[in-house]
Simulated assay, not measured.
Amino acid sequence: MAAGLGVLAPSSAAAGRRVHPGDSIQDAVNYARPGDTITVMPGTYYENVLITKRLTLRGYGARTVIRPPVTAVTPVAPVTPQAPGATGTPVAPGAAQAPAAQPPAKPATSTTPATSGRALACSQADTGICVMGTAEQPVVGVDIRSLTVSGFKRNGIWASYTDRLSVQRVISEKNGTWGIAQERSTRGLFRDNTARDNAESGLFIANTVDREGGATDTLGAVVRRNTLTGNRIGVTVRRVRNLSVYGNELTGNCGGIFVVGDEGEPGAGDMTIRNNRIHENNKFCKGNTRLPDIQGVGIVLTGAEQTVIRSNDIRGNVGASPLSGGILLFKSFVGATNTDNVIRDNVVRDNKPADLANQGTGTGNQFVNNRCASSVPAGMC
């Protein structure tokens, strides 16, 4: 009879927690055991969330929204798990739970677990969700899915020192820096997300952001089937190696995909960019100290090696920036060259000033069997 009613065994029931509007997501995260699933019910939650352990955080897509807190969160001492029946305690998936009172959305006043100063800084730095490990102990197996992070002064989702982070079916929009970003991390999976109208990159994967250094081996990170629109750059992969970017839709950004390296060792590259649809990324973004103006950019490689760009559909990217065009091997700002990259089997049409361009002094770059009309230098189509 218990099975017929959908009641799970106690060991299974302990894996589920629910958060309702008016509750704190951070409290549920703090009290969760490694491996727990936290389900955030439809509603708007005004808080920053810090994750430092393995768990699943999932919502209801556009119906579960995390927005900046009304007032700054002040961390207090760590807490011990609360008694059964309190907010955020385990429930069996599918089991009934008395609804929490739902006053008007309030700023989070949750506790913050004891962790590194770096993690604390991230949790209070105007970022929606921070996933923070350390060099000695990366956080492994965090899964974030089916929720929205919107309007943060810095990032929607930020991860550092993680392994096997999974971010799926997340909407990250209107954030002041990156939509979804990761550094110092390996084997990340970013799939079926929407990153739109973020001030910098919709998706950003880097070795580090606070110092120079050779490229990080991501051990096979995957950026797949995401929709990226209205950002400064759709996808940026900076000083990393060994990953794939495929099946994504990029349109209406200032630039589509940037692969950025420098003179550090090991070099950036050894990646595959394939089967992406990169159309009309013609929004204008003013340049800064690192880059010129950006407009009409399909794919740019600068300081990259052994990267394969194949079977992409790249059309209508038009601008007057030094970076404008369909696929561009750009001369590095720090003297690094593009070497041994392969650009093949792409449809590259109606991009200006050219569909294909090879600048700089790099060697071993191949342009093979691309369907295009114009190239610099001539003869690559």
Score class of each variant (00 low, 15 high):
370 N>E: 02
104 P>Q: 09
291 L>S: 07
356 L>R: 11
111 T>S: 13
126 D>S: 14
16 G>M: 09
188 G>D: 03
312 N>A: 02
152 F>W: 08
82 Q>E: 11
373 A>M: 05
180 I>W: 01
123 S>E: 01
132 M>Y: 08
256 G>E: 09
110 S>H: 12
50 L>S: 01
123 S>G: 12
200 E>D: 14
175 N>Q: 06
213 G>A: 07
256 G>Q: 04
268 A>K: 07
74 T>P: 00
122 C>Y: 03
34 P>K: 07
111 T>P: 06
20 H>Q: 15
183 E>Q: 11
313 D>T: 15
266 P>D: 08
374 S>Q: 14
73 V>L: 13
186 T>W: 05
84 P>C: 10
58 R>D: 04
30 N>D: 01
85 G>L: 07
18 R>C: 15
255 G>P: 01
238 R>C: 06
163 D>Q: 11
363 T>R: 05
151 G>T: 02
39 T>F: 08
217 D>E: 00
109 T>I: 12
94 G>D: 13
142 V>R: 04
55 L>A: 07
108 A>H: 05
81 P>K: 03
22 G>Y: 12
124 Q>P: 00
311 S>A: 12
246 Y>M: 05
132 M>K: 10
66 I>S: 08
89 T>G: 05
226 N>E: 14
130 C>D: 01
22 G>T: 04
369 N>F: 00
219 L>D: 08
14 A>W: 14
356 L>Y: 06
341 N>C: 15
289 T>W: 09
257 I>F: 07
59 G>S: 12
47 E>S: 07
148 T>Y: 14
212 E>D: 15
20 H>P: 00
152 F>I: 03
80 T>F: 05
140 V>L: 08
202 G>Q: 10
200 E>K: 12
377 P>N: 09
270 D>P: 05
173 E>T: 15
44 T>G: 08
35 G>F: 06
158 W>D: 07
52 T>W: 01
340 D>L: 14
220 G>N: 01
288 N>L: 10
26 Q>R: 08
295 Q>P: 04
62 A>P: 12
283 K>C: 00
200 E>H: 13
96 A>Q: 08
122 C>R: 11
206 A>K: 03
277 R>H: 13
192 D>F: 15
339 T>D: 15
270 D>N: 12
228 L>M: 14
61 G>T: 03
161 Y>M: 04
69 P>L: 06
199 A>Q: 13
340 D>M: 13
154 R>S: 11
256 G>I: 06
344 R>W: 01
268 A>I: 07
158 W>T: 04
269 G>F: 08
122 C>K: 06
221 A>F: 05
113 P>E: 01
276 N>Q: 02
357 A>Y: 09
95 A>V: 06
227 T>H: 10
274 R>G: 11
375 S>R: 06
62 A>K: 15
242 N>K: 00
85 G>E: 06
376 V>W: 12
102 Q>I: 04
177 T>P: 00
261 G>R: 12
76 V>H: 15
271 M>K: 01
364 G>P: 13
156 G>P: 05
